[in-house]
Amino acid sequence: MKQKYQIDGIGCGGCVTKVKETLEKHPAIENTEIFLNPIGATFITMNKTLTVAELQKQLNILKWYTITEIN
């Protein structure tokens, strides 16, 4: 299942790499695509639906990033 999110706090390619690697460490996340244009737009492919709170908990490893779902 592929869902669209907005990740705030991303400002460069290094941020994209760190966030992608951190999210993909979660066993339910198969793939993460993060864009710089529009900045922070994200598609996450999961094998099990995760809540925004669960995704945020995974991101909290890095600090400074917040995730919201886009419908």
Rank of each mutant, 00 (worst) to 15 (best):
E33V: 13
Y65L: 04
I61W: 02
K57P: 03
I10K: 01
L55K: 07
M1R: 14
Q56D: 06
M46A: 06
I67V: 10
I67R: 03
L23F: 11
Q6A: 11
G14S: 11
I39Y: 06
K20M: 09
K18N: 15
L50P: 00
T42A: 06
N37H: 14
G13C: 11
K57F: 07
N31A: 07
T66V: 05
H26V: 01
L55F: 09
F35W: 12
N71E: 13
K25V: 06
A28I: 03
P27I: 12
K20P: 02
K18Y: 14
I70C: 03
A53E: 11
N31P: 00
P38V: 04
I29T: 08
P38A: 03
T42Q: 07
A41R: 12
I44W: 01
Q3L: 15
T49N: 10
T22H: 05
F43I: 15
K18R: 15
Q3C: 13
C15N: 05
M46F: 06
A53N: 07
A53M: 02
K48M: 06
E30K: 11
T32S: 08
E69P: 08
F35G: 05
Q58D: 01
G13R: 15
I61L: 07
V52L: 01
L50W: 03
Q58K: 12
I70A: 05
C15A: 05
H26Q: 04
I67S: 00
F43M: 14
G14Q: 09
K4H: 15
V19C: 04
F43S: 10
T45S: 04
K2L: 14
I70N: 10
T66W: 02
I34A: 07
T32G: 05
I10N: 00
E69Y: 10
F43N: 12
G9S: 03
K4S: 14
E24K: 13
V16I: 13
K18W: 13
K25N: 11
K2N: 12
Q3T: 13
G13F: 08
K20W: 02
L62R: 07
N31S: 09
P38S: 02
G11D: 01
G11V: 00
F35N: 12
E30G: 00
V19P: 00
P27D: 12
T51E: 08
T22M: 09
Q58R: 10
G11S: 05
I10C: 01
N47C: 04
N47A: 03
L62I: 00
N71A: 13
A41D: 03
K20E: 09
T51L: 04
